[in-house]
């Protein structure tokens, strides 16, 4: 059975339909890439899976390991093992990175009936995990993402993923805005977290990321639907021919935009 099943998922924001029937099955331990031009609904899919309340699901269902996900609050989804690496990680002045992460981990452990970790044990574990993305100890003591560079924010996301050990990680454009060194570090962190028990959905605009995180399957989204699925070769073909190759109306715009520095 698939770990994640998305069936005929429709969602909108306000009166604007954004997801128009998504079907997606991700097996345990698999890494799926979702590609597509801007405005295709990729990030909306990530947000809906994580439970952001700006979106209204109008049809369809999502199952995690056979259990309905959409009726759960975001924190309950996290406790079930869902993790979203944010495209734009939020800066939270006044909340220490370590305190935040220990609070999160212990909240999840409470739900699972596990004993909470004390500050010492947590610190040891966090230090170990931070090596994975070469996150300096100084960052752990600062406020969450406050004053972090783009690359530091993305590494912090992967660090959090390493600590929280989700079953399903959704990476929303984790590569956007990173130079190649930062991309390698982040991708190395993600690869270090691949395991037969952990599935990943990697959302990206650029094929480049998939040189470093090699997916089992590639899906192309456009206009709120998955219009093409295939193996890794689909990504390479897209890279070569551009989104226009699939007959996408906004493919040209997307290709142009892809060349710009994005914030």
């Amino acid at each position: 059975m698939a770990l994640l099943s998305v069936r005929n998922l429709h969602a909108r924001v306000g009166d604007k339909d954004i997801l128009k029937g998504i079907d997606l099955e991700v097996g345990a331990g698999e890494v799926h890439a979702i590609m597509g031009p801007n405005g295709s609904g990729k990030s909306t899919l990530a947000s809906v899976l994580a439970g952001r309340d700006a979106y209204e699901v109008t049809q369809g269902e999502v199952l995690l390991d056979g259990k309905p996900l959409l009726e759960l609050a975001p924190e309950a989804r996290a406790a079930e093992g869902v993790f979203l690496a944010f495209q734009y990680p939020v800066e939270i002045p006044g909340v220490g990175n370590l305190h935040f992460l220990r609070t999160a981990l212990n909240a999840q452990r409470r739900v699972k009936g596990l004993e909470e970790l004390d500050a010492m044990d947590f610190l040891q574990m966090a230090k170990e995990k931070s090596k994975l993305v070469q996150l300096d100890a100084a960052f752990m003591n600062r406020s969450v993402n406050e004053g972090f560079s783009g690359g530091e924010k993305k590494r912090n996301e992967i660090f959090q993923m390493a600590v929280l050990e989700p079953r399903l990680a959704i990476l929303d454009e984790t590569d956007s805005g990173l130079d190649i060194d930062a991309l390698r570090t982040v991708a190395g962190g993600v690869n270090g977290l691949r395991s037969p028990q952990r599935s990943m959905v990697v959302i990206t605009h650029y094929q480049r990321l998939l040189d470093y995180i090699v997916p089992d399957k590639v899906h192309v989204m456009a206009g709120g639907r998955i219009i093409r699925s295939g193996g890794r070769e689909l990504a390479l073909e897209l890279e070569e021919k551009g989104y226009g190759w699939l007959g996408l109306q906004d493919g040209k715009a997307a290709a142009t935009k892809g060349g710009e520095a994005r914030r």
């Binding site: 979203l84 939020v90 939270i92 002045p93 909340v95 992460l101 981990l105 909240a107 969450v144």
Partner: peptide
């Protein structure tokens, strides 16, 4: 309270009330 920050904390597993308290104290 900042809705983005609240969602960020909740998405990591922190229950809503606890997340609100954290953000309030942070302020």
């Amino acid at each position: 309270l900042d809705a983005q920050a609240l969602f960020y904390l909740r998405s990591r597993g922190i229950p809503r009330a606890e997340a609100e308290r954290l953000l309030t104290y942070a302020f």
